[in-house]
């Protein structure tokens, strides 16, 4: 039996209203037609290019986008729409965020107090992340990058959340610590939480996650099973294959070009300008997801 869906996002789009000249306004679409869902006890990794809207997705779910953002589409938490009011009650408790930037720490406050005022609870959660309890008495600038990351993880898991959104929790950690942090997320999932893990480190994520959603230029191009990353042939979308080839142990071969910038997106498939499979069909209209071999892919030519 499949576990209940904790969070589902469908047809999400996010745009920013910007002033160009004087009172002229335009809308810059940064996320379009994005679909993901995550179940109880599952870790869904969200991977993809830098600037593909991964962090924005996290912020859209939590309702903490800046004021000039316009969100459309359907976000549901435990089957019910996640309204602004509802999410304001849940975040920090049932829904927790591990933020991406270490700048989210207050530079003028000792880190222990930032995790929780309860010192014994802090000590316990620090021990889980191999942080000495003396670290709680230090200010952020006295910590290394990897230590700050671990402090950020601690702030999120101390609340006993049902949905954890971890935005790049591991960069700057050594292999051993990163494995430990991932194992910890796996434990939280096994205890019943749903985890969305936003990451660049696909290689690391593979060992711990169930499924991987691949983002490109603000949309989901593929949702694959973690085991599909064993070989290039099992993957479906050309962009996912390009990612696979760029992983250091798989050849470290970059694909030319850059992701299109929001505001100058091509019509149709967003990856088409860099794609080796592209055909005439790719230039017209949005591409609906198709089910292929247990995964979902948005590509006319994927097989």
């Amino acid at each position: 039996m499949e576990n209940e869906v904790v969070l589902s996002v469908s047809g999400l789009s996010v745009s920013f209203r910007m002033y160009t000249k004087g009172l002229e306004r335009r809308e810059l679409k940064v996320i379009s037609n994005l679909n993901i869902n995550v179940r109880k006890g599952e870790i869904l990794a969200v991977a993809g290019s830098s600037g593909s809207g991964k962090s924005l997705l996290a912020h859209a779910i939590l309702g903490i986008l800046p004021k000039n953002a316009v969100v459309e589409g359907d976000i549901r938490y435990l089957g019910e729409p996640l309204t602004k009011k509802r999410v304001a009650k849940l975040r920090g408790g049932e829904i927790a965020l591990v933020p991406q930037s270490v700048e989210y720490l207050d530079p003028l406050m000792k880190v222990g107090r930032q995790v929780s005022p309860d010192e014994s609870a802090v000590e316990k959660v620090f021990a889980r992340y191999k942080l000495d309890k003396s670290v709680g008495k230090l200010f952020p600038f006295q910590l290394s990058g990897g230590m700050m990351r671990r402090v950020l993880c601690a702030t999120a898991v101390i609340s006993g959340a049902k949905l954890i959104i971890a935005d790049e929790p591991t960069p700057g950690m050594s292999k051993e610590l990163a494995d430990r942090a991932m194992k910890h997320f796996r434990d939280l999932a096994n205890e019943g939480a749903a985890v969305i893990l936003i990451t660049h480190d696909i290689d690391l994520a593979l060992g711990y996650t169930d499924r991987i959603a691949v983002f490109y230029a603000g949309t989901t191009v593929e949702t694959a099973l973690a085991s599909d990353f064993d070989s290039e042939d099992k993957l479906r979308h050309p962009y996912t294959k390009a990612l696979w080839r760029a992983i250091p142990k798989n050849g470290f071969r970059p694909t030319e070009g850059t992701q299109p910038y929001a505001g100058s997106l091509p019509d149709g498939c967003l990856f088409a300008p860099r794609c080796e499979l592209k055909g005439e069909k790719c230039a017209c209209g949005a591409i609906e997801p198709r089910n292929i071999r247990g995964g979902e892919v948005c590509c006319h030519y994927a097989a």
Partner: peptide, 17 residues
């Protein structure tokens, strides 16, 4: 100093190249 850890693998490979 860890200049590519924040980047996706394609960008990482591009920047190092």
């Amino acid at each position: 100093d860890e200049m590519s850890t924040m980047l996706d693998v394609i960008t990482q490979a591009q920047i190092w190249e």
